[in-house]
Design a protein around this nucleic acid. Sequence first.
RNA 1: GGCCCGUUCGUCUAGGGGUUAGGACGUUAGAUUUUCAUUCUAGAAACAGGGGUUCGAUUCCCCUACGGGCUACCA
Length: 506
Amino acid sequence: MSDKKVRVRFAPSPTGGLHLGGVRTVLFNYLFAKKHKGDFILRIEDTDQNRYVEGAETYILDCLQWCGLIPDESPVVSGPFAPYRQSERKAIYREYAERLVMQGHAYYAFDTPEELEQNRKEIPNFQYGQVYRMGLRNSLSLTEHEVDQLLDAKTPHVIRIKMPADERVSFNDMIRGHVSFETNQVDDKVLLKADGMPTYHLAVVVDDYLMKISHAFRGEEWLPSAPVHLLLWEYLGWKADMPQWAHLPLILKPDGHGKLSKRDGARLGFPVYAMNWFDARTGELTPGFRELGFLPEAFLNLLATLGWNDGTDQEIFTLDELIEKFSLERVSKAGAKFDFEKAKWFNAEWIKKVKGERLKEKVKTILEDKGISVADEDYLLKVINKVKDRCVLLPDFYQQAAYFFEQPKEYDINSVKPKWTDAKTEFFNLLVDKLSAEKAWDAAGLEITFKALAEDKAIKVGELMLPLRIMLVGGKFGPHVFDIAELIGKVETIKRIQKALELFNS
RNA sequence: GGCCCGUUCGUCUAGGGGUUAGGACGUUAGAUUUUCAUUCUAGAAACAGGGGUUCGAUUCCCCUACGGGCUACCA
């Protein structure tokens, strides 16, 4: 690695929500940058007017915010290489494209999209390149005079790279090692579109150069266009400054085949986007990990271990640990199928690991959204610490915590009724008296009182525990019953027993 | 079709010329929990196939198969 400052960039196009794979690319960029005390830049690649979606850029920003992966330079924080939106850099690219034309490494092409479409249909394996370009309308096949005329008449045209014949371009990928391509196999990619906007190919090279990017991470789907980019770096005379590349393995569908897509999430019932994405045009809402109840720590953790490991058995990592331990040599080459079950496991682990305090605001919101008012935050914290080990997703806190704040709405009566007896009614009536007289109100003391009375009445404790649970909780779940009684307090405990007693006896 | 990349339990993966091929999720069985979950213990479960190289290959090489990606004036 050279001694130049590490600068990496995440360069999404604002066309919709941020996909799992996108966030993982951000993560790896971020980890690499922070590990090497470098800069992490966010650059918006909005060169396609047609696919631009309102709100997508804000979404990306919010998403990075949620994950805690904050860029050092971006359209909003700015920096020495602004602007960071390619649409605002439009004028820059033309100059370089023209330069390539002058040097003979690129040329004007006047073919209409329809003509090309026609060719692709009629000629098997049609490629705009070596074989066919002289038969098409461009500044290579036309005379200088004809070209000037077309240009003067403002004929719509693009600029294409002229792929050289019979060359082998190769480079060293940080993940894959040596990769090489035959130039004859690559077509003359469009560099500058008819609307004057650059394509990704030109823009990424120009901006990576201008923004002094040292290492470039992107998905494996970009590997086939690497030779184009490589040649561009060379032709523009920047080869010495070319970033080192790393093509990340893809995240695949859990079942069938192919890249994981938004559709798969809907089909298989799990999120694919980081956060909810609402498409104003279609009115469609695509669910996200955040809203489903994932902690950002867990989300990042599961993404990090999808294609990377530290060589030990450790699976749970904090962001700081990831920064410390991350290394590209340990990124795997093969694509990984996404496993939502394991994703949930990561979240459960993080809910257990994290301090109750960290969960307070989130749980409060969940409860309040369900109409439960949370006045006492210390009490909430106690409740959270009692039940957090039983929650996989944040919304699970509703079921696990609601009964600490209000009487059960529903009772699992069927678990009690068949074995209900008058003796039990008598027991609980006596219990109410005993509890009323209880001085100290703590779980251990309550349990002693309860068991003593049971023995006195000659009823098996086991016969009484479940009814008491149903009385306090409403169902067969939750922590130790006496812990619950202690927390909800004397008055509430007695109230619930009395109310349930009426229900059981009606 | 062409080009490129890849291939260890169902899934994520560790390992690496000589190992009882390790871990995790999930799954199965059991223990603990007078509920449920947690936790704990145990079990089933993998080197795609064929050729080389080698004393020895799952590991290195080649081929095949399979999987994936790209093949737009999209990124």
